[in-house]
């Protein structure tokens, strides 16, 4: 672990019309680790991601990326620095084929800077790169899947497409908003190695997740949010054992399932 954290969030606070959605949340993420963020519904997980990536302006607090203050920057500038995100509700370009979906992020300034292909101006170049990325993320290259319209793809592929959109930018850190939710067990099973490979490639990940079992398998640290406040942070085993987490999740089958699994 390096000295200066990859991402440092300080006292992030967000008020939505009188409701405290986030209350002074402070945490660090270091190079190459996977930070899981869990918490019951409405505990401010997605808001936290929105605040970090500039989609929602924080009421107060600061965000540092590699020691650089990125608080209050517009979303596209933050993404340009390499802090990318996926959306919980998938947002592909429905009217375009899957591989054409990647042409758009590949057209961005960051991809132009970091992209490993020549020129990038010629028609067709980005299409090829797009298909390469899709293959990497689990679209079968020789099948018709990458060429299908995004509107006709199933959820599993759409989630992958979301990740692919981030990868197209050659990101330093990806904030994943529930990549496992809505997927079948087998789809998740094929997704987990993918996440592990991203980590091996040196990409830092923040994962919001409700599928605790899979999250605890990949995460190096887990932070628990409850009612907008940071409940605790620690290694997955510590978090699992903590009494407060159980009360926060009281009644949730998933935790019981995880507890018995652990």
């Amino acid at each position: 672990m390096s000295e200066s954290p990859m991402l440092h969030v300080e006292e992030a606070t967000k008020v939505f019309g009188g409701i405290l959605a986030l209350n002074r949340v402070t945490f660090d993420v270091h190079q190459g680790e996977i930070l899981g963020i869990i918490g019951p519904n409405g505990s401010g997980k997605t808001t936290l991601i929105n605040c970090i990536t500039g989609f929602v302006r924080m009421t107060s607090g600061k965000v540092f990326f590699k020691g650089r203050d990125i608080t209050g920057k517009p979303a596209h500038k933050i993404a340009d620095l390499g802090v990318t995100r996926t959306f919980q509700i998938m947002r592909p370009y429905y009217t375009l084929p899957a591989y054409k979906n990647l042409v758009i992020p590949l057209f961005s300034p960051r991809a132009k800077r970091t992209g490993g292909w020549r020129g990038g101006g010629k028609l067709g170049d980005r299409d090829t790169v797009g298909i390469d990325i899709l293959e990497e993320i689990g679209f079968e290259r020789d099948s018709f899947v990458p060429y299908k319209l995004a509107s006709s793809l199933p959820t599993g592929y759409l989630k992958r497409l979301e990740l692919a959109r981030c990868l197209a930018l050659k990101p330093e850190i990806i904030l994943c908003d529930e990549v496992f939710s809505g997927l079948s067990m087998s789809e998740i099973a094929s997704m987990v190695p993918l996440i592990e490979r991203l980590q091996m490639d040196g990409i830092t990940l923040i994962m919001i997740e409700h599928r605790l079992r899979e999250l605890f398998r990949v995460a190096s640290r887990v932070m628990v949010l409850n009612f907008g406040e940071k409940l605790l942070e620690g290694r997955p085993e510590e978090v699992m054992a903590d009494e407060r987490v159980k009360t926060a999740y009281f009644g949730s089958e998933e935790v019981e399932e995880v507890m018995t699994y652990a």
Binding site: A79, R91, S108, R165
Partner: peptide, 11 residues
Amino acid sequence: DNDQAVRASGM
């Protein structure tokens, strides 16, 4: 189609 995704792509 989807301006948020364009923003998220750094444009």
